[in-house]
């Protein structure tokens, strides 16, 4: 158990520290890199909880795809660092408010835990029990049975977001000459097959 505790403290300290660095780093690219470190260490925490599927999905989706695109954009932005610092105090009350709300929510959850310890058992439990199947299977059975409508709704939201992004950024420009590879390949004289003698040229 000592190893688990040490790993937990390592992961959580790095997660919290890098989360602080995300908002305090001067360079936005460093912020994104610290965000990635925070994601990665949260994945480590998931592994410690025995939720290895969620951990891997967190790394694949957030670190491997979302944060890459994020970093892509941040790297290409031409950012004026001085102008960025000016708005700091202006947004401080709003940011502080959001932080306070999150803190209160955490307190409510923690309070519920202390006041009614049996409340966790009422949440939907995977059938069969988690010790007879691995957690990928347990999660799949739960999502595709009890929560199928929510799952499908989440899928629809993502689809709408995707279509929206395409519609907003797609523009048809007149007079663009595009390469049509199928037509090129289908041309009679485009490809000629020759038998080459070994060691010789054409």
């Amino acid at each position: 158990m000592i190893i688990q505790s040490l790993a937990f403290y390592l992961f959580s300290i790095v997660t919290v520290a890098s989360a602080v660095m995300v908002i305090s780093a001067r360079n936005p690219v460093h912020s994104v890199l610290f965000l990635i470190l925070a994601f990665f260490n949260s994945a480590g925490l998931f592994v410690l909880l025995g939720a290895e599927f969620l951990a891997m999905i967190l790394v694949v989706v957030y670190v491997g795809a979302v944060a890459v695109l994020f970093m892509f954009v941040v790297m290409m932005l031409d950012i004026n660092f001085a102008a960025l610092r000016e708005g700091f105090l202006q947004y401080l009350p709003l940011g502080g408010l959001i932080g306070l709300v999150l803190l209160l929510e955490l307190a409510v959850i923690l309070g519920g835990w202390v006041i009614a310890p049996d409340v966790a058992e009422r949440a939907a439990a995977p059938t069969p029990a988690i010790d007879s199947v691995n957690n990928t299977e347990a999660l799949g059975r739960l999502i595709y049975t009890n929560y199928i409508y929510f799952f499908q709704a989440a899928g629809m939201v993502l689809l709408v977001a995707m279509i929206g992004a395409i519609v907003l950024t797609h523009r048809t420009r007149p007079g663009v000459r595009k390469q049509k590879i199928s037509e090129q390949v289908a041309r009679e004289d485009s490809i000629e097959m020759r038998d080459m003698p070994s060691g010789g040229g054409i």
Binding site: M56, M71, F72
Partner: peptide, 23 residues
């Protein structure tokens, strides 16, 4: 249990080395 997902996750992280080096 999630061996193939682990491989996929690690290979998707490979892009960071290149992106960081480039920047």
């Amino acid at each position: 249990n999630v061996g193939i997902l682990y491989l996929f996750a690690i290979s998707s992280l490979g892009v960071y080395g290149i992106l960081m080096a480039g920047w």
